[in-house]
Amino acid sequence: MTGFVGGAVYGLAGGLVIAVAALFGVWWERKVSARIQMRLGPTEIGPAGLFQTLADTIKLVLKEDITPRQVDRPLFRMAPLLVFTPIAMSLVVIPFAGGWVPLNTSVGMLFFVAVPSVSVIGVLLAGFSSGNTYATLGGLRGAAQMISYELPRTLSVLAMALLAGSLAPLEVMNRYEWWWTPATFIALIVYFISSIAELNRGPFDIPEAESELVAGYFADYSGIRWAIFMMSEYGGLVAASFFGAAIFMGGAQGLPGVFGVLLIFAKALVLITLMMLVKWTFPRFRSDQLLTLAWKVLTPMALVQLVIVGVILPWL
């Protein structure tokens, strides 16, 4: 039974990590956006406003859990969890350091791109069950965007798998050599952009745009269920950044133990901050521009990267 107990422990630890990471992520985002707009951001609660999100979360949890009368009740209540759970699950295959990968499976890379795709169903259900046109449109757009960007994302991860000769993230991290980053720079860019789009974050957040669709598929959500949507966005941000740091940037390789964890943390923080800078710098893409970017720019780029890796491979 150790497997089940271990799984439960890892599950709880993963949930805790994602919750803390989401709290920190929201605070960091508010600080970054404030610096861009020449504001201060949260300052009052805790040192440099660090506990502001905690206070916000307590407020959201204490709010009444409203389910509107016209919605499809069970589906409406289930949808946020369907979005959140797969993203939380995808955290278990991320290698934080040599022996610090919760689930060291031989199909980890595929797992990481496959499991979050389940949350597309949550997005569609949230849009459908809300029963209003804005939410349904937002859900359809969000789902179309997410499944479109899955393709370049998978292809970019595949390039790394091809280069390392393994689908296990830990193996890829251990075999990393410095010249991999220039050689697979295209893949890194494709991964970066499609991760942002996959999470429906700005500038690719037209499905949940306040000014166009009154918040899209979570227009009818409030309180804790809305917070779960937010938490899955920031959890996904953290997961994508750590995975990108581990796969494309060598992760914790080169430094032992705790220092390795610090190294991968620093790399992931750079990626997170870059994603936030992108969000607060660029205007929103239109829905058709989004799909054009995915299918006509990023997918061919990822294929070119695959060809480059294929050309390099025999010389190793």
Binding site: V107, F111, A114, S117, V120, I121, L124, L125, A144
Partner: peptide, 21 residues
């Protein structure tokens, strides 16, 4: 395990989403 992951990817993330669409 590869089949399990592909099942999630292809069916839940692909076919089922298409069906919902």
């Amino acid at each position: 395990s590869f089949l399990a992951t592909s099942e999630v990817f292809v069916y839940v993330g692909g076919v089922l989403v298409l069906m919902l669409f």
